[in-house]
């Protein structure tokens, strides 16, 4: 159990966050905060898992929403199958989650194995191409997926361990739990030796290889983990909306996730979550005033990218670091002059 000792600080932090989220659910009566937070759990996990690729390993994927959608569809399809729920009864929800996550993981591993050897431009485009492939499968396989209508008719959610996911509060707390578990896992990767290997690959892949790091293998593992965590995001959204929709697999969903990372900051752990919050708020505000929210979102992206050139938290951290380093170097100079 050395893992718990090693990462006790991270575990306590996430536990605290979980309790705070549950607190909001218990004591705020209005449905808006719960709904907003639940959709944030879903899109936050999409953005956070994508940042494992972009911010950590420097692998700019343009097709990450594919795994998000796949998680949601697998989960929904399993629970809609009466033979699945009939034979498993109370175990069907947890088992559907596990199967959806690992199924997505297998697919992500296959795509990752093909893409991880490519340079970054090819990588971006190829991941996009695989996403469009999944999208076209969802649209054309109408018998299974409902085509452009999505998975209709609701997703049954049999009671398990006393948790009734058709109840708003149970669902909210359960989704919060899934979210926090994934965030904890990502935070442990952030602090782990594996996470450091990802940053080595981002900074200088050739040197990492020469220090004995198995870069290809690590990139494929990273791609797989990122896909699996994104699928949990999709599962949360499927639980929340009681359905699954082809837009989740559309390229614009991946573009949005990339922008969340860029907006919040890719070098700071919680950056993507901040980005997800901001983008949700921007969308909500824009929708109040105009139906042309794509136009406005596009202009906002251009302004942020061409103006700031990095995320908000990146910007803050860079400023702090610059100041600290400038002071340090100035002290060093002063010491030299004294001697």
């Amino acid at each position: 159990m050395s893992m718990f000792r090693n990462f006790s600080k991270e575990i306590l932090w996430v536990l605290g966050a979980f309790l705070a989220i549950v607190f909001v659910g218990l004591f705020v009566d209005h449905p808006w905060p719960k709904d907003f937070l639940t959709s944030l759990f879903a899109f936050g996990l999409l953005a956070m898992s994508l940042n494992l690729l972009i911010g950590f390993a420097g692998m700019v994927s343009f097709g990450h929403a594919a795994y998000f959608a796949m998680g949601g569809y697998c989960f929904g399809l399993l629970l809609q199958s009466t033979s699945f729920t009939g034979s498993l009864g109370p175990y069907s929800v947890p088992l559907a989650i596990i199967l959806a996550v690992f199924g997505t993981g297998v697919y992500a591993a296959a795509v990752g194995a093909i893409c991880a050897r490519l340079n970054e431009i090819y990588f971006a485009f190829l991941t996009l191409a695989f996403q469009m492939f999944l999208y076209s499968v969802i649209l054309s396989w109408v018998d299974l997926t409902g085509g452009d209508q999505g998975l209709m008719g609701g997703i049954p959610r049999p009671l398990f361990l006393g948790i009734d996911l058709s109840q708003a509060l149970d669902r909210y707390v359960f989704c919060a739990g899934l979210f926090c578990l994934c965030i904890l896992f990502l935070r442990i990767i952030d602090k782990s030796a594996f996470g450091q290997s990802l940053r080595m690959i981002r900074d200088n892949q050739e040197r990492a290889e020469f220090l004995g790091v198995r870069t290809y293998r690590i990139k494929v593992i990273c791609f797989t983990i990122a896909g699996m965590i994104a699928s949990v995001g999709g599962i949360i959204l499927a639980l929340f909306t009681s359905g699954a929709y082809p837009e989740w697999a559309f390229w614009a969903q991946s573009g949005e996730a990339i922008f969340m990372i860029m907006l919040g900051g890719s070098t700071v752990f919680v950056g993507p979550i901040l980005g997800a919050v901001l983008l949700r708020l921007i969308n909500d505000v824009v929708q109040m005033y105009t139906s042309h929210n794509e136009l406005v979102t596009g202009i906002v992206i251009l302004l942020v990218v061409l103006g700031l050139r990095r995320g908000i938290l990146d910007f803050v951290i860079d400023k702090i670091k610059d100041r600290r380093e400038a002071k340090f170097l100035a002290d060093l100079e002063a010491k030299k002059e004294d001697q």
Partner: peptide, 22 residues
């Protein structure tokens, strides 16, 4: 980096699609 190139293209696609709609 490719991230920024990707984002400006994404933004441009969004804008043009909406311009065509307008």
């Amino acid at each position: 980096n490719v991230l920024l190139q990707l984002l400006v293209c994404y933004a441009f696609i969004l804008i043009m699609d909406d311009v065509v709609k307008l």
